[in-house]
Structures are given as structure tokens and as C-alpha cells.
Design a protein around this nucleic acid. Structure first.
Lengths: 127, 127
DNA sequence: CGACGCTATATGCGTACGCATAGAATGACA
DNA sequence: TGTCATTCTATGCGTACGCATATAGCGTCG
């Protein structure tokens, strides 16, 4: 089947593009801001929506992380003072995650790094 | 800058596409064949070249893995009997990695799973 | 030959991950 | 109200990862 090798080639290409960018981005965010890629993505989800307060499940649905990984990511961010968690009043199983001022600021700084890395490596990677 | 948001959008798109496929592929390979995505990619690199015997450094260069991760991946594969390692005679620092018969077979089976998952999720993911 | 710098691979260590499950709160129904 | 299935988040556990470093072999220059 020719379709099979074409499919595999497309995947290989996606894999390569992703990793070229992700490796650089991960390293840059860690060194410059002490953030994991997941940390940054989580902050990013919290800024790019209309409301800065979101339930865990909404975040989880929008992200690629497993539920447990997201829980720990938010725990890390809270420990660093970048977000805070509060119980939802209507449904007390739920947890709201909210950006702090420090979280806003850290995200804004990290975004500059992100843009720089993307400019440097995404064009190359994506062809 | 409009160029910035366009750049970020492209990255977000790449990130999403990659993860949709990678998550499914990782799970399917693990469940059906007991292989990590890295395991499979390593086997794949060993079959798709003219020669089935490659040095670690050649593998490392072709892959996204760090050197240490590749070393451990090959160790796993050897423990499972899918590859074997042998010292290079010309340069005894070097290590050759060679597919075993079992490795060939496992790869061939896993490739069917790969194709199936790609067919199912790559089109959707890549749009 | 001997010391030194360089390269190739392996390993100690700490971290983020996913899976399975625990724990807490909800809603429905007897 | 009491029970029970369900939903939402957190956590125990084992695994793969990257970074830094150890180990082993190479080549050069004296």
C-alpha cells in the first residue's frame, strides 16, 4: 500500500517537527523562567480565555495532559504562587484554578521566550 | 504583532495534532505489544535503513531522544531480546545495535498497530 | 612510552508522567 | 433519611526522561 507509507511519512514529519520545537522550548522555559512546558501551557490556558478562573476539568479537557498530571501541575504552580485553588461553591467536588498577579507576570515574561523560540525553530521545523 | 499570534497558533496546532496521535499510539503500542513509543521508533530506525546494524550515535542523531534515554531504551530492548549490542572492533568505545529475529517480528506486528492508529487519528489531527 | 584532551556509552539522581485507586461530594431512588 | 452509582480531584506506585558525571577507549604531542 502506498497510502501506508505516505501516512507513516506524515507522522514521522509531525513527530520531527514537534520534537525540534518542544525540546528547545522546554529547555528555554526551564532555564529562563523555571517552568515546565506543561506549566506554561497551563498558565496559557488560564490567560487566553475570557475568564481567568477555570475548573480543573475544563483545563483538563482543553489540554493533552492526563487528569493526574494536570492535578500535579496545578499543585506545582500553586506552590510557586502562580495560581491559587479554591473550592467551587455550587459543586464542592470541583476546584477553581485562578491566576495570581505573579502568575500573570510570569506568563507574560515566559511568552516572550516562547515567541522567540518559535520564531527561531518553528519555521525550520514545520517547513 | 499579528505575526506573533499566527506563530503561536501554528505551534498550538502542531502541539495538539502531535498529542492526539501520540497519546493513542503510545497506549496502543503498550497494550498490544509492550512497547514504548521510543521503543518502537528505535526498532523502526533499525529496519528502515539499508543496514540492520547501527551504532548508538547514528541512532541518537536520527532520533529526538537524549543520549542517556537512548542508552536506556536500547537496554530495555536488549533485555526483551529484541536487539543485541556488540562492541565495534575498529573503535571499541562504539556499540553496534542489531535487530534480532524476534525484534524484526515484533516490529512488523507493531507496525500494523501503528498504521491502524495513524489511519484512525492522523487525518483528524492534521486536518 | 606517558600525559592530556576528546569522544562514545552508561549510570546516579531528581522530576514529570500515566494508570489505578482512594477520598469526598453529588444526585437519584427506595 | 439511607443506600448506591457517579463524578471530580488527589495520591501511591512504577516508569521514562534529561542533566550531570563516571567510565572506557581513542589520538596527539612531547
Amino acid at each position: 500500500m502506498e497510502a501506508e507509507t505516505e501516512l507513516v511519512d506524515r507522522w514521522r514529519s509531525l513527530l520531527t517537527s514537534y520534537n525540534i520545537v518542544a525540546v528547545q522550548l522546554e529547555r528555554a522555559l526551564q532555564e529562563a523562567h523555571g517552568l515546565t512546558l506543561s506549566d506554561f501551557e497551563t498558565l496559557d490556558r488560564l490567560t487566553t480565555r475570557d475568564c481567568d478562573k477555570r475548573r480543573m476539568q475544563d483545563l483538563a479537557a482543553a489540554m493533552y495532559l492526563s487528569q493526574s498530571a494536570l492535578s500535579r501541575t496545578v499543585a506545582r504552580l500553586e506552590k510557586s504562587g502562580l495560581v491559587c485553588r479554591s473550592h467551587c461553591e455550587d459543586d464542592r467536588r470541583g476546584v477553581f484554578v485562578e491566576l495570581t498577579a505573579a502568575g500573570f507576570q510570569r506568563h507574560a515574561e515566559a511568552r516572550k521566550t516562547q515567541i522567540a523560540i518559535l520564531g527561531e525553530h518553528l519555521a525550520t521545523a514545520a517547513g
